[in-house]
Design a binder for these strands. Structure first.
Lengths: 154, 154
DNA sequence: CCCTTCGGTCTCCAATGTAGACCAGGTCTC
DNA sequence: GAGACCTGGTCTACATTGGAGACCGAAGGG
């Protein structure tokens, strides 16, 4: 095995083969969970949370408090009913969000953060704020990049 | 307009119509950027960053330092070459990651975080760690949810 | 009686992601 | 010197995902 190559640039700290492949059989109670490992349950959770819509929903619930379905749809610009439903179900299923149905007519359904969801929302919110703060800078970098990569070809 | 309804549960703080629709024309220098607004440039950036692969790449580069293409592919379990290339290009284009080609044979390409990327990685890493810490708890919530929603139907 | 509202679901169709073949072009082996 | 590597991609098929819009059921209004 050519481990020397990996050492050159300092890689390969996560997934030392055992974690990457294992983590299914035998990683029940110990914190052998590793988001980098394809088969690890934590990766599955991460994939569900590291998503545009889920994050925006969490941010909206965190910033504006409990909201009903249609409010969320208005708050999270551009989300389709299908994706909103799906993301909310995921969040509900994982114990991050509470769904409360008021059996009125027309039906009223209110979503709110559970403690676990609030915890996560507080990690996600900074990410949204950072993006807003740095968006113009990144946009500028893009233009520079595009100029540098489309221009010199001529 | 039925604004009273929105007020009931306390929604609609972001995107007061002007921000949601505008933000394209006329929001150049002011921080009118809003990730919740579908057409806002910051939303576009957010959508690119709030992604499984981009986040895992940032986390890997942050945790293990500069890495070459194939190292990243091994580190980020399950990523396809196509998605790895695409995500890295996005990150490079936005000024988060530096791509360095060493014209040796076989070719060697090393990716590293730029200051902007390091900043973001430091917000993303806690999210990964949180997921690992809470994964089992969320998994348990799932089972409970599934039991409560599949069982009673019978 | 029909129309509207709410919170979805269902059905398409377009876009996105994955798997795997291919490629350049230099080295190593035979 | 003819293959068989190696890397860092790209290209091509195919499966999965996401979006747009129709539909729904029960209550209420005109």
């Amino acid at each position: 095995m050519t481990t020397e190559e990996a050492a050159q640039t300092g890689a390969g700290r996560h997934q030392e083969q055992d974690r990457a492949q294992g983590c299914g059989p035998g990683c029940g109670q110990e914190q052998e969970l590793d988001v980098f490992a394809q088969l690890c349950p934590s990766r599955e959770m991460f994939a569900e949370l590291a998503d545009k819509w889920s994050m925006l929903i969490l941010m909206s619930l965190s910033a504006c408090g409990p909201q009903r379905f249609s409010e969320l749809q208005r708050a999270v610009g551009g989300v389709s009913r299908k994706m909103l439903t799906q993301s909310l179900r995921h969040l509900e299923r994982s114990g991050l969000v509470l769904r409360t149905v008021f059996p009125e007519t027309p039906p009223r359904v209110v979503y709110d953060l559970l403690p676990l969801g609030r915890e996560l929302a507080e990690l996600v919110a900074p990410l949204g704020r950072w993006t807003e703060r740095r968006a113009l800078q990144m946009l500028a970098a893009r233009e520079e990049f595009d100029a540098a990569h489309a221009g010199p070809a001529q």
